[in-house]
Amino acid sequence: MIRFRTVDLLVTVLIGAAFGVAFLGYGQLYTLIGPLTAAFKPAEGLLAGIWFLPAVLAALIVRKPGAALLAEMIAAVLSMLLGSQWGWGTAISGLMQGGGVELAFLAFRYRRFTLPVAVLGGMLSALLEWGWEKFAYYQEMSWTYSLVMLGFFLLSGALLCGVLGWAASRALAATGALDAMPAGRERAQRARAAAAAGRPAGSAGSAGPAGPAGPAGAPAEGMSRDDARA
């Protein structure tokens, strides 16, 4: 069995919790496409992908089996406890969304953590979530419209979950917040290679340029380098 370090567990859980909190602020997005969805409810599928983000981010960052599912379930349980309008349906959605992403990374045996796999994950989540919603919420919707809705779901899963999630994982790595994680290590190694090649380490920040270093010998003077948070 793959062992989760404590930091793996906490990073996964906190990705879920942070999204659970951020999602509360996302309700407003639906008002943006309000005119569209009032006439044609399935257009809400266009935003479906954002709800799978915790799963794809956890998979890309933690890179261990089960991370996607756990992060998405935490986000789902948090919204349930806070009073999500879908009640226990939210838990099933969490399972579907986390499970879809999990399947994509499983298909590549947790060895590839690239954009195409993230996009596939987003689309699988979209497919499963659509299936669940069709069954639980939109039983009476005609199949024509249901399939149109599926199209929106897949598009959204690919873009808002897959592409956006992948971009977010890169942006997070650039902040140094993932340095203890495999996803951050790649950035760090690139920065180290760049530094070794004599270029300033760019996004490696204060880890790269030595700063206005004072004489290394004098303790009080040695303070000139700031503490970079590891």
Binding site: A174, P200, D226, D227, R229
Partner: peptide, 14 residues
């Protein structure tokens, strides 16, 4: 000197 660095990679003081 740090103009191109990512703000989040700076130290607390920076």
């Amino acid at each position: 000197e740090l103009g191109q660095a990512n703000p989040h990679t700076l130290s607390g003081g920076e």
